[in-house]
Design a protein around this nucleic acid. Sequence first.
RNA 1: GUCUUGGUAGCUCAGUAGGAUAGAGCAAUGGCCUUCUAAGCCAUCGGUCAGGGGUUCGAAUCCCUUCCAGGACGCCA
Length: 540
Amino acid sequence: MQLLKIKNQIDIEIKNILSNKYNIDKKTIVFENPKEIQNGNLSTNIALQLTRDLKQNPIIIAEAIASEIQISEYISEVKVAKPGFINIYFSDSYFKMLIEEVDINYGSFKRKDQKKYLIEYISANPTGDLHLGHLRNAVYGNALVNLMKKAGYNVGTEYYLNDAGAQMNNLGLSARYFYLLLCNQEVDFPEDGYRGKDIESIGKMIFDEFNNQKKDESIDFFIEYSYKINLENIKSILEDINIRIDSWVSEKELFKNDIVKDTLQILEDSNDLYEKDGALWLRTSKYLDEKDRVLKKSTGEYTYFTADVAYHIEKYKKGFTNLINIWGADHHGYIPRIKSSIFSMGQDPDTLEIPIIQMVNLLEDSKTLKMSKRAGTSVTIKRLLSEIDKDVIKYFFVMRSPDTKLDFDISLAKEQSVNNPIYYINYAYVRINSILNKALEFEYKSKLNNQYFTEIEKNIINLISTYPELIVESANKRLPHIIANFLYNLASLFHKYYDQEKVFTDNPIIVEKKLYLLEKISIIFQDGLNILGIKLKNKM
RNA sequence: GUCUUGGUAGCUCAGUAGGAUAGAGCAAUGGCCUUCUAAGCCAUCGGUCAGGGGUUCGAAUCCCUUCCAGGACGCCA
């Protein structure tokens, strides 16, 4: 990409100047894209950084360096500014080159490393409907996958289904409870049961289908029935919001296929296993954990953790070299033990990365709604999707840093849908479409005839030229919201441009140039929102 | 108590591999539709970047400390 290219060139040039002039070998030179265009298109603070070593006024150093930077076809001016910045200004012909390189593959990278990433996300237990926390996780994960692919990473995705253990039993008991109620049979509510409307409706479904024929049916029937319904619901919601997962792994299968047993065998060799109080322990405290963890209870049952260790090792066995688990903040305390287990299994724990997504606080009319499954008040995505545009919801989740807890007010989201930032971006796109359609009518072509750009056009090109770097940065930092912010800024510049300069004027050369620019902007909107997993409307 | 994430404008948030006068949206006030979609644009108002110390040419950003808020601390899953 052009901007990266020219940065490299100037980087080398300045390093040469430094070594010739001051005999200094500087490893990295920091470049910035100044916010204000009067500070140039590229800027470096190298002179400021050298003040201590050289014991000179930074302005003097900056001027000495700046005077030796070659003015070229691409660089029209090099200036020194206040404390000691060196500001580099691009030539018009370079702006032309910057915008000319924008196409569908703009900002797409290839990586040379052989790493294969597996991103596991959502992995909500199939004990009920998905809720908002899962949705944030899903939307973030989906955007991260797209982003990393764009940046050249080799990425696969997975959903881990906890379809074994006590919780499945609780699910079955709860469904049976609601079913038996409908059969007019007095029963106690199960101790750790789920009270949610979703489970209640499963009880009703069973009753509707079988009447009271299943009154004496074994618990397995209720477990299987409920599990199937829940899994279908989860899958259909993910389909509704256009999120695809490559593979689904079942905890039950891990036991069936002896993967858990095999894992214990490997751990046996690691010397990190021991028995105490009739239970089997893993010495996780040897590595990162604050205390050891039980793998096999004194009752002979395996813990959830055991299956999870087996599951993680299985991921490596499948050929993935790097794992990314996207977890909610409530799972934070679980990180040290799982990383420790990876140590014990002979893998490098640094190859397991765990971005933590902060909780979603659900509000309605400014009042907090509790999201506990047990209390049965969790608000389902199904309900939200029926009331609010799914792309509005998705943008709302992906526009913010995952490190901030999110207040999601249902009533506000509905009200503000008109003022929602996604519409601001989409509106820019719609305006461009509308102009381009009109251009077809008038039989204008888009064409870059000369290299004259107005101030605002240079601003736009300048911003667009940073897109490829932002792709890399946000992918490496695992922060898709950086792209959301970028798109918003681009939309803002476009709206300004739209307002300042009409496209259809008397001069066909200028019309063609503007159409050309608009096509490029449109490409960026489409590409960026595609990464975020959001569909653009063609008309509003 | 320990671990962890936050604390930036009235509200919701950007901005942290140290950089130029700290930015948006919403809210408030005032302007802009006889040419491409006013879901827009422009202007005004609004800040002790939680408090205190430190590091340095330079700190919202790094370090120490105090306070406040969310989350987690099972032979549950």
